[in-house]
Computed example of a mutant assay.
Amino acid sequence: MDTFRDDEMQTSFLEVITVVGFGIEAFGILVIIIGSGISTTTFVRTYRSVEEGVAYKKYRKGLGRSIILGLEFLIAGDIIRTVVVADSLENVGILALIILIRSFLSLTLHLEAEGRWPWQKDSAP
């Protein structure tokens, strides 16, 4: 009887973790959508009132930052779902590949948005 209850608890735990992982990923997508909307709205409001190119640079920076933050949540959701729920070596390999691709995107977007690598000090005061 206890074995049945343990299996039921384990199944419930895995279901909760799966939902939490998907929830974190959904939040990451929401961050990207909202950040993109805010960046676009700000760009449309300011592009005629500032110097040429300034609004575009701010737009790219804001858009890049929202994508980077969203990617961080997507990676976190993947890690939670894959490590806790799917414990096969194949799934861990797929997770590693996904994290590698998303981390590369995050680094290159950071370089594009900030003009420096994440580990470099900010030169502007």
Rank of each mutant, 00 (worst) to 15 (best):
L14N: 11
R65S: 01
D7P: 01
E51T: 13
W117T: 14
K121S: 13
Y47A: 06
W117L: 15
R5D: 09
R81H: 12
R81L: 09
T18F: 10
T40A: 05
A55I: 02
I32R: 04
E72H: 14
L74P: 09
S12L: 14
Q10M: 15
G70I: 05
V83G: 07
A113W: 10
G93A: 14
G93L: 15
N91H: 15
F4Q: 15
L111N: 10
P118Y: 10
I24N: 00
V50Y: 01
T11I: 06
L111C: 05
Q120V: 05
V20E: 00
E15V: 09
G53H: 04
I98M: 06
G70W: 11
L95E: 08
K61D: 00
S39N: 00
G64I: 10
L14A: 04
D87N: 15
F43S: 02
N91G: 00
V85K: 12
R102M: 06
I101G: 02
L14W: 02
D2E: 10
I99Y: 11
S49R: 15
L105M: 08
L74D: 03
K58E: 14
G37I: 07
S88I: 07
G77T: 08
I75P: 11
M1P: 02
D87V: 10
K61V: 00
T46I: 12
R65F: 07
G28F: 03
I38F: 05
V16I: 08
G62C: 09
V19R: 10
V16H: 09
M9L: 13
R60Y: 06
A96C: 11
L95A: 09
K121T: 11
R116H: 09
G53L: 12
T41S: 07
F22L: 10
G35L: 03
M9S: 10
A113L: 07
F43V: 02
L74I: 08
T18P: 04
K57F: 05
S36V: 04
I80W: 13
G53Q: 07
T18N: 14
D87R: 13
E90K: 13
D2N: 10
F13P: 02
D6L: 10
R45Q: 07
V20P: 00
L14E: 05
L30A: 11
V92S: 13
I38E: 04
I94V: 15
I68M: 11
E15M: 11
R5T: 09
M1Y: 11
G35M: 01
W119C: 11
S12G: 03
S106Q: 09
L74M: 14
R65N: 13
V31C: 09
Y59C: 01
V31K: 01
Y56C: 06
S106D: 02
D122I: 03
A96V: 03
S36A: 10
F73Q: 00
G21F: 12
I34S: 06
R48H: 12
L69G: 01
T3R: 02
L30Y: 11
R60W: 00
I80F: 15
I32M: 15
E90W: 15
S12K: 01
T108W: 12
I98F: 14
G115V: 08
Q10A: 05
E15T: 10
